[in-house]
């Protein structure tokens, strides 16, 4: 219920902002895009005004594990620049310039936009309805012809690297990079069967790589996970390569394994190079480090 109220509030604020800023006036939007005509700078002030509170919100979110309603924070979208992104943005830009409406203002102005506003909204919804089918037809082929493997080895130390999900064909490259031991931190339940632990293990062992399954359930990391990771790293004859969905869990376990042996700042800073945010775990790493220190006395 609270969730719906805040969604209503966010929608209301958004609608108010679009109205107050003048962005529901198509001539202001076209005026901003019309560099060779009577240029209207308003839209730049709107964007600037909107980005400020949003940038603060991202900083607050980075320090939290849950929202203020105790809901999950969103997974950050990937940063891949794809043909769909470019083509879609160009088509959107053309349509935006033709009429001067983007999806937010098209919805916000529907009660007073007249027949033109209604027709635009209908056409936009039709475009959205056809978008997935057309995308599959046009970009489905494109995606298949581009090379599939985009594996990226992300070393946290010279002897421990993390990575997003790999597939069996990537293992040869992992071996070639000098790794001797693979840790699979991803539960089978999350992935299609051709990537399941048994398949990966067979492929790794065929190449002479050691393979250890240590599934970490998202949000349900256990000390047993930390112990297995620690043991595997200690026993490995050479560098260790760990993978999960994004590499985040492999980084979290790594930081907990080394709590107390390296500074907490270091354990957080190193994975942040690859965009893994371990800041919310600071307290946990400190507590483990204190435990470890206590145990030695």
């Amino acid at each position: 219920m609270q969730r719906l109220l805040f969604a209503l509030l966010a929608g209301g604020l958004f609608g108010a902002g679009l109205t107050v800023s003048g962005m529901i006036d198509t001539t202001k939007v076209q005026g901003w895009l019309d560099v060779f005509g009577d240029w209207d700078p308003t839209l730049a002030f709107v964007m600037g005004g909107a980005i400020l509170p949003m940038a603060v919100a991202w900083r607050i979110a980075a320090r939290r594990q849950k929202t203020f309603l105790d809901l999950d924070l969103p997974d950050l979208p990937s940063d891949d620049v794809t043909p769909e992104l470019i083509t879609g943005s160009v088509l959107f830009g053309i349509g935006w310039a033709l009429v001067g409406l983007c999806p937010g203002p098209a919805l916000a102005s529907i009660s007073f936009g007249g027949w033109g506003g209604g027709l635009f909204l209908l056409a936009m919804l039709a475009g959205m309805l056809f978008a997935p089918g057309l995308r599959a037809q046009i970009f489905g082929r494109l995606t298949q012809t581009t090379p599939r493997s985009k594996m990226e080895i992300r070393p946290l130390t010279p002897t421990y690297a993390v990575s997003p999900q790999i597939d069996p064909a990537d293992l040869a490259a992992v071996k070639a990079a000098g790794y001797t031991t693979i840790i699979d931190n991803r539960p089978d339940g999350e992935i299609p069967s051709h990537l399941h632990t048994a398949v990966m293990k067979a492929a790794a062992e065929e190449l002479g790589l050691a393979f250890v399954a240590n599934p970490v359930i998202p949000g349900g990391l256990t000390m047993e996970n930390v112990r297995i990771q620690s043991q595997t790293i200690a026993d490995a004859p050479g560098p260790v390569f760990a993978y999960c969905a994004s590499g985040n869990r492999c980084s979290v376990v790594w930081a907990l394994v080394h709590a107390g042996t390296r500074s907490t700042d270091d354990l957080i800073r190193v994975p942040s190079k690859y965009g893994y945010n371990l800041e919310p775990l600071r307290g946990q790493i400190d507590a483990l480090a204190a435990d470890a220190a206590g145990g030695k006395d």
């Binding site: 969730r3 805040f6 969604a7 509030l9 966010a10 929608g11 209301g12 604020l13 958004f14 108010a16 902002g17 679009l18 109205t19 107050v20 800023s21 003048g22 962005m23 002030f45 709107v46 964007m47 600037g48 005004g49 909107a50 980005i51 400020l52 509170p53 949003m54 603060v56 919100a57 991202w58 607050i60 979110a61 939290r64 849950k66 929202t67 203020f68 309603l69 809901l71 999950d72 924070l73 969103p74």
Partner: peptide, 17 residues
């Protein structure tokens, strides 16, 4: 108006995730 739009986005992120 831009500030209000940004505030809307902040509420949606920090409350609803």
């Amino acid at each position: 108006g831009g500030l209000l739009i940004g505030l809307a986005g902040a509420v949606f992120l920090l409350m609803n995730g």
